[in-house]
């Protein structure tokens, strides 16, 4: 099945996963690229997006698998035609004839911006680095079946902090993204629960790259 790599930036980050699926289905139609439909009582266009993205999270490495009906169209043309039918903030970066099975997807590189409106507290960088160097760190995880505790340390492959400016401290982390997966926002939740005085005024998250088990780029 062909695969598209796309990014979700700007205000498009507020489009939910389900809405994004609908948006792509319509974009394919507008682009004159008919999708095959699932069989059955209620046929649906075959598009699927790996690793549903939380609302508000930016990404430069989203994968969309789809299946076109009719004559084959060159990948570059699919890419161009889709982009002219998409909205601002959703942009296809490349289309591949086929992709590696999603089950081999293992890690995610992300950036988390911690914004401190009155300046980054002096102790912040060291304290946060130390926090994530602990042998274990349980954070409450909200799920449909109530809240559970989750030790996030085993799911952090690597992590570093970088001061962007006076107000913005950046976390760059490589985390597990499948079986089990760590929502990068949990890193902020850990700060808020263990270092409440270092809770940022605002934080935002961005997916930078996805990788396989061997930590090479996944497509």
């Amino acid at each position: 099945m062909p695969r598209a790599l796309f990014q979700k930036t700007g205000n498009a980050v507020y489009i939910s996963h389900l809405d994004l699926m609908r948006l792509f289905q319509r974009a394919f139609k507008r682009a004159g690229l008919p999708l095959t439909h699932t069989q059955g009582y209620n046929p649906r266009p075959s598009v699927s997006i790996a690793l549903p993205l939380s609302v508000g999270v930016e990404s430069h490495c989203e994968l969309l698998d789809f299946d076109l009906d009719g004559e084959s169209v060159p990948c570059e043309e699919i890419c161009d035609r889709l982009n002219s039918a998409l909205v601002d903030g959703v942009k296809v970066l490349a289309v591949y004839e086929d992709g590696i099975k999603i089950k081999h997807l293992a890690y995610l590189d992300c950036r988390i911006d911690l914004e401190y409106d009155t300046g980054i507290p002096d102790s912040a960088q060291d304290a946060i680095t130390e926090l994530f160097a602990r042998p274990s760190l349980t954070v409450e995880k909200k799920s449909k079946n109530g809240n559970t505790e989750q030790d996030i340390i085993p799911m952090i492959r690597s992590l570093r902090l970088e001061k962007q400016d006076e107000n913005n401290l950046c976390i760059f982390a490589r985390v597990c993204c499948q079986n089990p997966s760590l929502n990068p926002n949990q890193l902020v939740a850990a700060i808020a629960s263990y270092l409440p005085e270092l809770t940022p005024d605002f934080s935002k998250c961005c997916r930078l790259e996805i990788l396989d088990q061997g930590e090479t780029i996944f497509r």
Partner: peptide, 18 residues
């Protein structure tokens, strides 16, 4: 941009549709 992540269905406040 700080408010949007905290409200229900933020996509309805941003425009930018096709």
């Amino acid at each position: 941009q700080r408010i949007l992540p905290t409200v229900q269905k933020p996509a309805r406040y941003i425009g930018g549709e096709y």
